[in-house]
Amino acid sequence: MKLRELAHARTGDKGNTSNISVIAYDPGDFAFLREHVTADRVKAHFADIVRGTVERYELPSLGALNFVLHDTLGGGVTRSLSLDAHGKSLSGCLLEMDVPDTQHPNGEVRR
């Protein structure tokens, strides 16, 4: 199953650092996201993009995770050679991440 089935995301940029929020559509899926969408997995997902560390912050009251990706934007929006210098498209790339199929509380298996 793709992460996109469970969560939405938004990218922001400050200097050479990108942040990507991952927000559960259903707050009941937050624990599942916390288990499966780790900082290590996000760094591996963006192996060709992230040159620094990845930090994860948890916001359980919003059902959200916030990932901070250091040294990621080719020197920052003002200097990057990237087609998407802000890295705004990274949220869409992150939602392509595979997560295990999960059973929704209503019994329906999501994949």
């Binding site: 938004r10 922001g12 400050k14 942040n19 929020s21 927000i23 930090e55 916030n66 901070v68």
Partner: peptide, 14 residues
Amino acid sequence: RTCKEQLLYELHDP
């Protein structure tokens, strides 16, 4: 959902 996305926009340590 729109508010959650914007609350976390360009945020690092919340």
